[in-house]
Nucleic acid binder design. Structure first.
Lengths: 229, 229
DNA sequence: GCGAACATACATACTGGTTGGTATGTTAAC
DNA sequence: GTTAACATACCAACCAGTATGTATGTTCGC
């Protein structure tokens, strides 16, 4: 009885085939870009035939969108959003931990960040691609911003900072260094970048709290919108 | 006698044809990427024939290399290296001026930085492309670093900074924000980025100089390698 | 339990269009 | 008249996509 759990031997295993295609397509698109990745390359990498691919994905674009919404979105969640939920730790320390744990293998540096790659290539060319990628960037930034706001309310993050702008600053830096390292094809460029990002993250911490004085300080005086660095 | 100055009416004007091809190729590559730009697109944009193109450039790659070495290199020089030579102004102010003068038109944001685009696409795929682009990135960073060193010797730039690392930090941020703005297709994202970069640049300035005391401070104590932000 | 009926999940062969590149012919300039 | 500077026609390889056929899995009547 081959119901319930999927048996490997099944010849028709649509979920498995679909996932196989998605992973291979992601791999190829990550390396060569979406436009330059041929359907046949994906088929050759999977031993799946064209009929099967076009059964699961109506067009090449649809396959691309699925890569963004399923695989890359998961990467953002796994690397950034989920680790941010770790309780008990201070926001800045959480961010430092995340940045330090980012992949540093030569392969990772070589092909750089999939989100960035696809966004660079497709954003000005295909609006539906752009929108999907934008959602991921925004969820990333909003996650960081929310974490910073939490830190501000806990008095562990400087309150003169604008969380949204700091968040996009962080994202810009991570992606910027990823680009430099990719061009240099040098892990050390990335490692120096990480060090500098971590150094900058440390500067976000609230200074040692002064003894609480009797009279309260007006919020307006504390929360300045223009941040220092 | 149509010697000396080139007459427009000349039918065979190789320099002009070559330049025409280069400019059109740059434009298309900037928009769609190198791999996805067809030779025929460039020909259609210039009313030049295939024979003429392959007379001037042996392969599509050679055309791409020429774009990097002639057009993009000139952009780096014009936007960064030359403005850095302005005498009399303090290094940090020069950098702020340059960053503030970077293009902000919707078209510029849409297609983003040509150097970054090509580097993102071609660095892991073609070593000769990568090398040429790397040279431009290094000249850019070295220019910034040299300017910072000058500022340090003039005591207008903090001496606890590592000029090379600050320079790559700046480049990473510029390119990172360019990517974010390109994905968002929003000039405001870029403008916020510029503001934050300028804010950060201001933090590089040496603090008000303390009254010179009698005994000299050892250089080793002043120049720390780990910078603050 | 069992097979007909049907739907899902592929496989194969092919198409029109495009790709970078080339072989060969022509014209302008000196 | 020689050669540099093109123009034209053509090529094999590849592209995304499709038409059509086939094997597998499921459902349902009985």
């Amino acid at each position: 009885m081959l119901t319930g759990h999927a048996r490997k031997e099944r010849l028709h295993n649509p979920q498995h085939t679909r996932e196989l295609l998605l992973q291979a397509a992601f791999r190829e698109v990550h390396r060569s870009g979406f436009q330059s990745t041929g359907i046949n390359t994906i088929l050759a990498a999977t031993n799946v035939t064209k009929g099967a691919l076009y059964y699961h994905f109506p067009t090449k674009e649809a396959l691309g969108y699925a890569i963004v919404e399923e695989i890359i979105a998961k990467l953002v969640r796994d690397r950034w959003l989920h680790p941010m939920l770790s309780h008990g730790k201070k926001p800045v320390d959480i961010l430092i931990g995340i940045v330090r744990r980012l992949p540093v293998q030569p392969e990772d540096i070589r092909w750089s960040c999939p989100l960035l790659n696809l966004a660079q290539e497709m954003s000005p060319l295909d609006e539906r691609f752009r929108k999907r990628l934008e959602r991921l960037f925004l969820s990333w930034q909003e996650g960081v911003a929310a974490l910073l706001r939490k830190g501000q309310s806990q008095r562990t993050v400087r309150r003169d900072l604008n969380p949204d702008e700091v968040a996009s600053f962080l994202v810009a830096m991570v992606e910027g260094y990823a680009s430099l390292a990719k061009n240099a094809q040098d892990v050390r460029v990335w490692e120096v970048g990480i060090r500098n990002i971590v150094g900058w993250l440390k500067s976000l911490r609230a200074p040692r709290q002064p003894r609480r004085s009797g009279r309260r300080i007006l919020k307006k005086q504390v929360v300045k919108r223009r941040q220092r660095f």
